[in-house]
């Protein structure tokens, strides 16, 4: 499957929720869509799920416009933390319904997930706790095995041990049934190991799209005596600076050459890795 987003903007009254966004997603990988609250993650994902149309620009999935395209939408599943407070049906009937309109739905796998999440089959969903309702959404999302599966903060409401089950099942099922999975989150440090590729949005704009591995190897922290650190990072893209006494630590973004690494070591500077969480924080902070 291939998703192409070209120069897409979404305007609410006078405010841009998304501004001139362009990217392509075309591999069976797990994509992490990171952004702070209100950055535009859900707006972006609801375009892909054709819940809305862009104000300008275009979106295509397998070369077709997804909006009001029922045939195409069988292949796209948008999973969010649905509120089942008015749902009187039980899980068994709910799954049977889903099975009818989701062509790749795997009932055995759904049952396996239900056991892992310890969900009751015969209680009305409205009696489920918030965490259990989340687990229902995730179960349907995973077991539907849609070639494009979008999880929009679907873990909301789950406690930490339940999220862990979700992550395990996701990775295992993805290794056996690879598909495009897009997950939006701001729980970056908890989920970073899941992502093959990362997209960061900030205030409606796409800050970057890059493979996880190359992204984290681009960032580094340089620590040492303040004036040595200053002269070393002078011409580099600096994300953040911390100082304690005369020890300074500067986070930089941009590939360090071997020569630069050696130069840093020769000066007695410490070159350390930085996490996706740190990169995310410093790439999305400021000008508000």
């Amino acid at each position: 499957m291939r998703i192409e987003v070209n120069n897409v903007s979404v305007k609410f009254k006078n405010r841009y929720a998304l501004k001139d966004i362009t990217f392509t997603i075309n591999e069976n990988k797990i994509y992490g869509l990171l952004g702070r609250n209100g950055a535009g993650k859900t707006t972006l994902l609801s375009l892909l799920a054709s819940f809305r149309e862009p104000s300008s620009g275009s979106i295509s999935i397998e070369g077709e416009d997804p909006f009001e395209n029922a045939k195409l939408m069988q292949h796209v599943n948008f999973v969010f933390n649905k509120d089942y407070k008015d749902e009187t049906d039980n899980l068994k009937n709910t799954l049977e319904n889903v099975n009818r309109y989701r062509p790749y739905f795997d009932f055995d796998y759904a049952n396996h997930l239900i056991q892992r999440f310890k969900l009751p089959m015969d209680k009305p969903l409205k009696q489920f706790s918030k965490g259990m309702q989340s687990a229902v959404s995730v179960t349907i999302g995973l077991a539907s095995r849609a070639p494009i599966t979008i999880f929009d903060e679907a873990y909301n409401g789950m406690d930490a041990p339940t999220r862990e089950i979700f992550y395990q099942e996701l990775l295992e099922d993805q290794s056996e049934h690879p598909r495009i999975i897009i997950m939006s989150t701001h729980l970056v440090s908890e989920m970073d190991y899941l992502f093959d590729e990362v997209l960061i949005v900030n205030i409606g704009e796409l800050v970057l799209q890059e493979e996880y591995e190359s992204l984290v190897t681009k960032g580094a922290s340089i620590t040492g005596p303040a004036e040595d650190v200053d002269s070393f990072v002078q011409s580099m893209n600096q994300l953040n600076t911390k100082q304690l006494g005369n020890t300074k630590s500067v986070m930089i973004y941009g590939e360090l050459s071997d020569a630069e690494r050696k130069a840093a070591q020769a000066k007695g500077l410490e070159v350390g890795p930085i996490s996706l969480q740190e990169l995310f924080i410093h790439l999305t902070e400021g000008e508000e």
Binding site: Q168, L171, S175, Y193, E213
Partner: peptide, 19 residues
């Protein structure tokens, strides 16, 4: 152990484990 098992066990990214 498979890469997926290692990823789940160590909570280290797939790309890193594969390398």
């Amino acid at each position: 152990p498979s890469t997926t098992q290692l990823v789940n066990f160590y909570k280290i990214n797939h790309a890193t484990v594969s390398k």
